[in-house]
Amino acid sequence: MTQSFYSLSWTDVFASMVLVLFSIGLLRWWKIGLEKTLIIGTLRTFVQLSAMGYILTYFFGQRHWLFMVGLVSLMILVASYEGYRRQKTALHIPHYFIIITGVLTLTVILVLGSVLTFILHVQPWYYPYAMIPIAGMIIGNALNTTSLTVNRFVGELEHREAEIDMLLSLGAPPRAAIHDAIRESVKAALLPTVNSMMMVGLVQLPGVMTGQILSGIDPLIAVRYQIMIMYMWVTASTMTNILVLALVYRQFFTPRQQLRCDLLRRS
């Protein structure tokens, strides 16, 4: 079942660009002004993914555990830097880069480790065909939802400053004073993932599963993979969100349990 039903040549890939040309035509007709960006995006998709294909082929040829661990660590570092850089609010949060790197590392160790060892029973555990794509999925998804959570959290703190001050003035510990802010932030970041779990299979087939079916995998096997991936996503996202906020909220308080308004003003 691993044989491809429809093998895709580079000529076929170039042919698929015609679809994008059609989109560019539509944008131009309606003077949306996004044509140039779309052309750049189309070329970058081609170049980046082609390069990634060659890089993955090289990586998949490696057979040393230390190489794989190094590679996953590099993925975490790059992702953390990207997550840190793309958030203007996070730039002012003390230790944010360290927090996000630490939490991503812990999430990868626990979730990736569980999937490889106890679920897929991969032998050896660092088998690159399993380890690299799954690590990529965990890191990418966790990073996206974490960015949403932290942005929302800072917004909630600004919005709820009076409420937080009131709670602190009544003797509430910081964690109790910002509990509602944390709850709303985590909910907002996780709802899209949870909603996609509600809708999956009803309207659209998820990308991973579609790709597997197209390449000739039995749909029953493909769905099993997809179910595992969905569970893995939601676990990684929940874990990262909660842990990041558990460490980030402390940065907004002094040891005297005072809200650091100076950080909010700079956000």
């Binding site: 009076a162 409420e163 001050d165 009131m166 003035s169 009544l170 003797g171 510990p173 005297r256 349990q257």
Partner: peptide, 23 residues
């Protein structure tokens, strides 16, 4: 002040704000 327990201090020194914030 910095050597007092902050939770206990805030209970002994209550505060009302311009806008009453109720949960």
């Amino acid at each position: 002040l910095e050597s007092t327990d902050v939770g206990r201090l805030r209970k002994r020194v209550g505060m009302l704000f311009q806008e009453a914030v109720l949960v």
